[in-house]
Write a protein that binds this DNA or RNA. Sequence first.
DNA 1: ACTGAAAGACGTACATT
DNA 2: AATGTACGTCTTTCAGT
Lengths: 156, 156
Amino acid sequence: MAAEPLDKLEPRADVDRALLAALARDGRASYTELATQVGLSVSAVHQRVRRLEQRGVITGYSARVEAKAVGLPMVAFVSITPIDVAQPDDAPARLAHLTAIEACHSVAGPDSYMLKVRVASPDALEGLLAEIRAAANVTTRTTVVLTTFYEDRPPV
Amino acid sequence: MAAEPLDKLEPRADVDRALLAALARDGRASYTELATQVGLSVSAVHQRVRRLEQRGVITGYSARVEAKAVGLPMVAFVSITPIDVAQPDDAPARLAHLTAIEACHSVAGPDSYMLKVRVASPDALEGLLAEIRAAANVTTRTTVVLTTFYEDRPPV
DNA sequence: ACTGAAAGACGTACATT
DNA sequence: AATGTACGTCTTTCAGT
């Protein structure tokens, strides 16, 4: 599904933005609650949320899980660069099975990709870096996170 | 709330992990669905999820919003370093009002903080960088994201 | 597009084991 | 801790505006 800018397609984008903001804050908010917040009927809200889902503006709902509480207190950013420029560069696919990798972006600049990883300990990070280098034939440059002040603030 | 490792506190952490994984995938899953998946009664599942929430393992629920669809197709990582070492270093608080900043971490290495930002355009990025430098009295080093292969994969 | 109403599904609390 | 029941609320659909 296309997922084009709200402003282009929706005549009353303000209501949709309010719904998105409310659902970003509380993904389990009831339609009754949402209806009260935006001043529409439950049916109207339900219809708009369904449309946001179908258009791919809302791609799903998630529980926010505290990583520390599941034994993954350590975060790092890993910049990677292919060693052999001749080889096909399919690092994202080669790394996808490593569940410690939370995010994978290709980037402009001297490095090819930026990974965000979440591990249990420095030892686990060391092991993960070895796995990354082996799986993708890359060099790594790692920046360890000391404190996370905020993270995943919603885009609305 | 404390939020300590599951393994330490829960005798049947496997069930809780399954619940966390299910709720990370679908934060609106009904207790009936969850009960079927883990093979317990609705009441038992409800009780366990409530406990995960109260212990701070689940910190809330969110709609996943497609940033492109709300007019923010561009992502960048911004490393920042204070200009004046004598001044108090409260950059995270000074930057918190900039909603384009999705995440703010302090990091080890030559830079002090790593920000993840989400903007509408290169122009918007340029403006944001000026705001960041002015608000926090820092220099910036920006890495533009070209493609996001995956992002926000759940830690369970 | 929004409203209101009706039917069934779900969330929640409580008594029981 | 887990279960089953019971009640109130919510989701979902549909006819009407």
